[in-house]
């Protein structure tokens, strides 16, 4: 059953690549866009990787039913995201490094990170 085996292999490959594809930034109109989604208790993906020394955008979607404050003290960003809303946060070219972000309305939420390389 070579055909069925191929289908299974393709399915497994797609399942493995899916989360990777979701966490990879996309280049749109010259600027890199990284997407992150708040699911009620955490940000997904927990780590975004973006190119260093280039401007980029972070699209933050709040899939929860309460407002969050997307805050990065490291990158000096502070935005309120209402339930169901997606916002775009503009980031200036950033030196290589590890920068954290959180929900400043609820500190029990695990921090996320932006890795600039």
């Amino acid at each position: 059953m070579p055909c069925r085996k191929n289908v299974i292999l393709m399915f497994l490959a797609a399942a493995a690549a899916g989360p990777l594809a979701f966490s990879q930034p996309v280049r749109a109109g010259g600027a890199t866009v990284a997407a992150v989604r708040f699911n009620g208790d955490r940000f997904e993906p927990a780590k975004l990787t973006v190119p260093a020394n280039q401007p980029f955008k972070v699209e933050v979607t709040n899939a929860d039913n309460k407002a969050i404050e997307f805050e990065s003290f490291d990158l000096h960003r502070e935005r309120v995201v209402r339930p169901g809303e997606t916002i775009t946060v503009y980031m200036a070219p950033t030196a290589p490094g590890h920068y954290t972000f959180c929900d400043d309305f609820d500190h029990s939420v695990t921090e996320g990170a932006i890795e600039a390389r």
Binding site: F73, L75, H76, R77, E78, R79, V80, I87, V89, Y90, M91, A92
Partner: peptide, 21 residues
């Protein structure tokens, strides 16, 4: 952490953050 005038230009780069500040 909450407001750093030395980072003022950083805030202005993102209009949404500037509006909050």
């Amino acid at each position: 952490k909450r407001l750093n005038f030395t980072a003022w230009k950083d805030y202005l780069y993102d209009p949404g953050t500037a509006a909050r500040k």
